[in-house]
């Protein structure tokens, strides 16, 4: 409870001021230079239309500035759900929220805007932190498998979020098995360093999507946090042979929605606070381990 109240205190001014974010990513296939790679999102952003722009505000980040950290969203091939690209779920709102809140909560010099990169893009290797969602419908092309594999083995870090139930798990397990066949997926215990790298995370909470969260918050009858019957939250990981985490997997939980809807008064703040805390820990860990 204590950590939550700290989180609320930290988030409150941000929410009160109204979160500001840049309006999407710049387009175009950038040249190979370093700077353009940092500043320009991959063509993926255009290839896959954005899911939503509603409720967002103008840009704050300076595109000419170079930052130490880019919250890079993985654009991958997939069958898609409801006619949309799965990778772009909650994009770019969740991304803009997490980047701006991270700037407030931590000393990380985060680029305060969204940033998308394709798995088969060589520029992927310039962004050692990668966020992927809805991996339950992920379907990687061979070039993407190779791109992600080399990325992770070279030192990249993948955070997986927002996929639910055994079916989606199986899909993801199969896909990631293509990428890193030599390393098994294991449950990450709460005494792992990743849970104390910034905040002290004492439990794994199931973070509901926005609708379930609001329902639970309002005490609606039959309201529940899970998206699939009886599924409980777990944090899994893939470790290399030196016990370094390459992939952190947030299963049966939706951190992205909690970031995105942090300012929604009907969405319980405790989920957003937890989601930001977990993200801060994952990112600090990825930058130091």
């Amino acid at each position: 409870m204590k950590t939550f109240s700290i989180g609320i205190l930290l988030l409150a001014p941000l929410i009160a001021a109204g979160a500001v974010s840049r309006n999407g990513a710049a387009a175009g296939t950038a040249g190979e230079t370093h700077a353009t790679a940092f500043r320009t999102a991959s063509s993926a952003a255009d290839q896959f239309p954005r899911q939503s722009r509603g409720g967002f505000y103008g840009a704050e980040g300076d595109e000419d500035e170079t930052y130490s950290f880019y919250f890079s969203r993985a654009a991958y091939g997939s069958g898609g759900r409801f006619g949309r690209s799965a990778w772009a779920t909650d994009y770019p709102d969740a991304d803009v929220w997490i980047t701006n809140v991270l700037r407030r909560l931590t000393g990380v010099d985060v680029a305060p805007y969204d940033h998308v990169v394709r798995l088969d893009d060589p520029k992927l290797r310039r962004f050692p932190f990668l966020y992927a969602v809805e991996v339950g419908s992920m379907g990687l092309a061979p070039a993407e498998v190779q791109g992600l594999r080399e990325y992770l083995l070279a030192g990249g870090f993948l955070m997986v979020d927002d996929f639910w139930g055994a079916g989606q798990w199986e899909n993801f397990e199969w896909e990631i098995g293509q990428v890193l066949p030599e390393y098994p997926i294991v449950e990450i215990p709460l005494d792992h360093e990743i849970f104390s790298s910034y905040y002290a995370i004492r439990e794994v909470i199931q973070v509901p999507n926005v609708n379930n969260g609001i329902a639970v918050g309002m005490g609606a009858p039959g309201a529940r946090t899970e998206e699939c019957p009886g599924c409980s939250p777990h944090i899994f990981g893939i470790l290399d042979d030196k016990d370094r985490l390459l992939v952190i997997i947030n299963w049966n939980s939706d951190l992205g929605d909690a970031w995105e809807h942090a300012e929604n008064q009907r969405y319980p703040l405790m989920y957003s606070t937890y989601a930001y805390q977990v993200a801060a820990n994952f990112i600090i860990y990825a930058m130091t381990h």
Binding site: S68, F69, V108, P128, G155, R244, I283, I284, M287
Partner: peptide, 15 residues
């Protein structure tokens, strides 16, 4: 003084 990837990779390099 600030979280940055130099820390991660420097640690890995001498690990």
């Amino acid at each position: 003084g600030e979280p940055r990837f130099e820390v991660k990779f420097l640690r890995r390099a001498v690990d």
